[in-house]
């Protein structure tokens, strides 16, 4: 009997040793997993400590993430969803699929106070129109300037893309009841509405338009990674809409410990140092090394707009209907 128990114990130990490395599946947006995005570096950094296999799965742009999760419901294979933003947290929370992260004492360096118990910020930035200084010598200083100009812009679909949604709420925040009229005027400048940010930015770099909706931090990419100072972001008098990108863990994950570990890792120095020069956003917690050189050249909006949680959800519905009605004409 004793031999049998020893044998069983040995087998058990052996099988644990041979057991597959646990896999942590993270759904995110496409540009996060691209070879030049944060994905590869973050994967390497986390796998150093977790004894696990971190797998990122790109599901299109940020807003498609939410649709994906809704569609998959409780059957989802994701353990973590990374890349929703503050505009979508109310709708995402309403699915009941996400669990609290339990790390309320993180000291964020965000321009707003963050108290959401479920969605954990990992970076943030301001939306802005990015242009090439060589082709646009006199960038617009407001939406009114842009409308009066003959500049062509590329924007993203607010239903699939978080920057697209950001612009929708930016216009709503600035123009309120006149948002519909503003869109009618803006639309004559729109070359195309892409499904996601990557495609829009790629088309812009190919010269398909004068400006593209992106971030105030985008010129830092060209400056630091490509040593190319030709790109700038147009500073608008009306202020800029802010994006706070968040992650959350799936409540019924089969890897709760790993998922918690990853949620903690999000605000760690290791993660936050990687963000500025790969995702080209401001870190949610400024790393001890500070911001990389070159970030000080970026424009600083004087006014920041943001809707949070439930308010963002309500505004999204109103503004989306307005945009669809005007833009489908």
């Amino acid at each position: 009997m004793k031999t049998l128990t020893t044998f069983a114990a040995a087998m058990l130990a052996a099988s644990t040793a041979y057991a597959e490395t646990p896999i942590l599946t993270v759904y995110t947006y496409d540009s996060f997993v691209s070879s030049w995005g944060p994905g590869p570096a973050i994967e390497a950094a986390f796998e150093e400590t977790c004894a696990c296999d971190l797998q990122f799965i790109g599901t299109g742009d940020g807003a498609e993430l939410l649709a994906r999760i809704r569609l998959e419901g409780a059957r989802t294979k994701a353990d973590i969803v990374l890349g929703l933003d503050a505009n979508l947290t109310a709708a995402a929370g309403a699915t009941g699929l996400f669990a609290e992260h339990g790390q309320l004492d993180t000291a964020f360096n965000l321009p707003v106070e963050w108290t959401d118990p479920v969605f954990q910020p990992f970076d943030w930035g301001y939306f802005a129109f990015v242009y090439n200084k060589e082709t646009v010598s006199n960038p617009p200083q407001s939406f009114a300037d842009l409308i009066a100009s003959d500049l062509k812009i590329i924007i993203q679909d607010p239903r699939s893309s978080t920057p697209g949604l950001g612009l929708l709420l930016w216009v709503k925040a600035v123009f309120g009841n006149q948002a519909g009229e503003t869109w009618a005027a803006l639309n004559s400048h729109v070359v195309t509405v892409t499904k996601g940010w990557s495609e829009a930015y790629g088309l812009f770099l190919e010269g398909e338009a004068d400006m593209v909706l992106s971030y105030t931090t985008s010129p830092a990419y060209h400056l630091i990674a490509e040593e190319d100072a030709r790109f700038g972001a147009a500073l608008f008098d009306e202020g800029h809409y802010m994006q706070i990108e968040v992650a959350a863990k799936i409540a019924h994950t089969e890897q709760p410990e790993l998922a918690d570990m990853f949620m903690e890792f999000l605000t760690s120095d290791a993660f936050q140092t990687i963000i500025p020069t790969t995702n080209w956003m401001y870190p949610a917690v400024t790393p001890t090394s500070g911001l990389p050189d070159g970030f000080e050249t970026l424009i600083q909006p004087e006014t920041a707009h943001i809707y949070l949680a439930e308010q963002a959800r309500e505004m999204r519905e109103v503004a989306l209907d307005e945009w669809l009605a005007v833009s489908s004409k």
């Binding site: 498609e64 649709a67 679909d157 639309n187 195309t192 833009s327 489908s328 004409k329």
Partner: peptide, 21 residues
């Protein structure tokens, strides 16, 4: 297609399922 102005019904069906669920 370039956004809502150039959407066919088939594309709208896809968007209703995949974007708005």
């Amino acid at each position: 297609g370039g956004g809502p102005r150039a959407t066919t019904i088939e594309l709208a069906i896809y968007q209703a399922v995949r974007l708005d669920f």
